[in-house]
Every structure is written in C-alpha cells, then in structure tokens.
Design a protein around this nucleic acid. Structure first.
Lengths: 143, 143
DNA sequence: CTTGCTGCAAACAGTTTGCAGAACT
DNA sequence: AGTTCTGCAAACTGTTTGCAGCAAG
C-alpha cells in the first residue's frame, strides 16, 4: 500500500500542477516508512540521514502538501510540536496518550463515531473531522 | 459559585505558600467573569482594561497557577493559541468547533464517556482526562 | 526558457525567563 | 527584613516566508 499512497500523491500533484522533485520523493518515502505520530523535527532528521541537503522548510512545506493530498493528518498533543500521522483509507482511530512514557495506543470505536454523528445532527453541525484523545497512564506506567 | 472558586484558589495559594496580590485577584476576577475558551491575549487585554499595569507575563504565569489549582484547563485548538476554559465541578464537556466562524458549541454525552472508560479498561489504561473535538461547519456556516 | 521548488537565513508568533525593583507577610 | 511577585525586555521554540539560485517540464 506504499505504492498506492505514492500514486495518490502523484495524482494529487498532477492535478495541482506540482512538480516531482527528489526532495518530495525522499520525504514521502521516509514518511511512509515511519510509524505513527512523527514530529516535523524527527522527520527532518530521518530525511537528512537518508539524503543530504534537505532543509527543514521543505519538510514543513511538504508535510502540508501531504495533508492537502489526504495522506497525512496533523495532530496536536500537549508537547508543543505538531505531529503528523498517516491517514488510513476510510477508517479513523483515536488515541490513548500515556503521560508517563508518552506512548500512544490507538483505538477505534464505531459507537462513539455514531454518537458523534447524532450530536452533530442535533446541532445542525456538519462534521469534517474529529479528534478524541484520552490522557492518562498506560498499564506499565500506573504504579 | 464565583465566591466558591475564589475560595478554592485561596486555599490552593495558602497551601503552596503563594502570596495574594492585586494582579492575581484581578486576573481571577476577569477570568471568572469571562466566557469559555479565552486566549491569553484576550484575557490580557481585558485585564488591562480593568486595571493598568499588568504584564502579559503575569497573565501567563497566573493562568498556569489556575490550572494547577484546578480552576482552569488548557485547550489546544488549531489556531496556534493556547486557550483556557473553566473547570466545572465534576462534569466534563466536549466541543464542536466550527472552522467557518471559529465558534464553539459545547456538549456532553454520558454514553461516550462510558465507552471511553470501557476502552481504557480494555487496555489497562488509567484515564486522567480526555478531549473530544469535532471539527466542521455550524448550521450558520454550512452553505 | 519559463516557472515552480529549494535552502538559507531572517522574520514571526506565542510563550518563557532573567533580573532589578516593588509588594506582600 | 526576607521573600515572593511583577513588569519589562530579551530569549526561546516551533513555524513561516522572502529571495536568489537551481531544476523540472
């Protein structure tokens, strides 16, 4: 599905008249190879390790493109850094964030999603996205 | 209940050996008189209108104290500013955030809270707090 | 050759911090 | 008097932007 994502980005790029560059390819590769919730800084370091001469600015700019292309999603946790996660086709997941070790457990719950739809409908609200984060201590960190 | 909140803060201050100052009183008054989701900047301006000579830094410092004292809670939306909301005894509410006009509708849903507890339990996770934000367009903004 | 993309460094916005003087106890 | 608190301005951090040169189409 990595190929699939690359294709998605190419289609998007073509439709926008964007050019294909070494940097964007590198960043996309690294992003796709990465696990959930990379910060820009982390990604920048990984990209730099693979190929010299990619500036932070480009990483920032490119990540925004990925978001536009629907490949990535911004998430704001409480650590002052914007992080990006993969958008997995169709489904959505939420996060259990451990404040002890900063680990993140993902979960999905169809019922919660449905309830959200109901709540939105009740307020005449049209949902575009949502974010549910539960903070606390994971099983290892609760002593 | 404003008196009640002031008392809460005084108790907290006393227990921490903090001093009572004109600035802190002013900021607390303004915060309590304020509606949900004030940014530091907004609060700073309101405080300055009431009494000259209160610096931004003090507002920042004081808001953190309110959080520690359990009166306020930080919320991070997607506008680059940290906002603070009132902590209402016991109950918790979540947000429908309109990306059109930046208005915020609050809601509560007991069932969602229960589902969260179940999910957490399933992962051996101990919940400390959570945050559910639904982004989209409110009834006025959806055209 | 035209136009978009990049790296760099400077600019920014929000927040934090060091410090000298003011204020509380 | 002894400390804590404050305002100011400078420092910081994460992110954005202007621009000259580079590279893709």
């Amino acid at each position: 599905m990595i190929q699939e994502k690359k294709r998605t980005f190419n289609v998007f790029a073509a439709s926008k008249g964007l050019r294909s560059t070494r940097q964007r390819d590198n960043i996309l590769d690294v992003f796709l190879a990465t696990h959930q919730h990379v910060s820009v800084e982390e990604l920048y370091l990984k990209v730099k390790a693979v190929s010299q001469g990619v500036g932070q600015a480009t990483v920032y700019r490119t990540l925004k493109l990925f978001v536009e292309a629907g490949l990535a999603r911004e998430i704001l946790l409480h650590d002052g850094q914007t992080r990006y996660e993969h958008v997995l086709a169709g489904e959505h997941h939420d996060h259990l964030v451990c404040t002890g070790c900063n680990s993140i457990i993902e979960f999905e719950n169809e019922t919660i999603e449905q309830l959200q739809d109901e709540i939105a409908a009740r307020h005449g609200f049209m949902i575009r996205s949502h974010k549910l984060e539960i903070y606390g201590l994971c099983s290892r960190c609760r002593t």
